[in-house]
């Protein structure tokens, strides 16, 4: 198993290389010029040309790629064109917020979505099942920014229970930390909660039709034991896949949530960098995020083996 994991890790390197070069190429064909943005309103054409030279933007594309890849190999993600701070520092400042937000959102999604999906499947056709389906459709349909503002209005402005915006690190205390994450995580989780509930229900419906489940009930086992120990374990592979994909999607979806709640996360760092054409930051963030995606996929593959020993790679 360990050898397999190592082999898969090594296999991610070419994937990362392709991602890196594709990102670099994409950025350089999009319109916009950081030199012009830096130069400002009073700049002459000569000023802009000088800045472009200093940033190396006047070099041929292949030279720029070679310089950047050389830096990456040395573990240097570069420096922000605007702030002058190392990209690794900027990512370090933001990664914690996005990681906690994503983790909490996924905990809520799984913690609510899976039980709700199991119950809906068990009570198929009942009002509970129909209510779950209504919730699922609503959850998919609600725009994140709209839900965020509604939650802020109800819980922060009207009730005053939770803060409107911002982020405090764990070191600031358990409640200050949690209180700043509850609304954003809830906002971000609703769509995935609905997705996981639907997927769990669908997967469970198939498993609950199996003979061994009928046998388990016939033997007089308690419904909870049958549902969780026998049915859910066998229905969990598609759910694990969705959770894995969901993690990746949550990182992307965090952009809107981070903006609505003014959270200093990777999503906003990326958007701000794109708006300003801060190439080193965009490239650095996308490289790191793509690495996280690859790792999540690897974890999902490993979980398949754990959940179903018949699976071999």
């Amino acid at each position: 198993m360990l050898a397999e994991i190592l082999r898969r890790l090594m296999a991610t390197l070419p994937v990362m290389a392709v991602v890196a070069i594709a990102v670099f190429a994409l950025l350089h064909v999009t319109p916009g010029d950081p030199a012009v943005i830096i130069a400002g309103d009073y700049a002459t054409t000569d000023d802009i040309a000088r800045i472009r030279t200093r940033l190396g933007l006047d070099q041929p594309f292949t030279t720029q790629v070679a310089i950047w890849v050389g830096r990456i190999v040395r573990g240097d993600l570069g420096t922000s064109i605007f702030s002058g701070l190392p990209v690794s520092t900027l990512i370090g400042q933001r990664a914690g917020t996005t990681a906690w937000l994503t983790l909490f959102a996924m905990l809520i999604s799984v913690g609510v979505g899976v039980p709700v999906g199991v119950v809906a499947a068990w009570r198929r056709g009942s009002w509970i099942d129909r209510a779950v389906m209504v919730f699922a459709v609503s959850g998919f349909s609600m725009p994140t920014f709209w839900l965020g503002f509604i939650l802020v209005y109800v819980f922060a402005i009207t009730a005053g229970w939770l803060p409107v915006q911002g982020y405090l690190p764990v070191a600031s205390g358990a409640w200050p930390f949690l209180s700043h994450l509850i609304l954003p995580a809830l906002t971000l989780s609703v769509a995935y909660m609905a997705l996981i509930a639907r997927m769990t229900r669908a997967s469970m419906l198939g498993v609950l039709e199996e003979d061994y489940i009928r046998t388990a009930f016939a033997k007089g086992l308690a419904p909870r034991g049958v549902l969780i120990r026998h049915a859910l374990k066998n229905a969990s592979l598609p759910v694990v896949t969705i959770v894995g994909i969901g993690f990746a999607l949550l990182i992307g979806g965090a952009v809107v949530t981070e903006s609505v709640f003014a959270l200093p996360g990777l999503g906003r760092l990326t958007v701000d960098a794109i708006v300003r054409r801060d190439y080193p930051v965009i490239q650095g963030v996308l490289l790191v995020v793509s690495g996280v995606y690859v790792l999540i996929n690897l974890v999902v593959d490993v979980l398949y083996v754990v959940l179903d020993p018949r699976i071999r790679y």
Binding site: V152, I157, P163, V164, G166, V260, A262
Partner: peptide, 18 residues
């Protein structure tokens, strides 16, 4: 100084005293 890209968030934060 805080940077809040969303005006509605800034308005809510001001109203809430944050």
């Amino acid at each position: 100084w805080r940077y809040m890209p969303d005006a509605a968030t800034a308005a809510a934060a001001l109203a809430a005293g944050e």
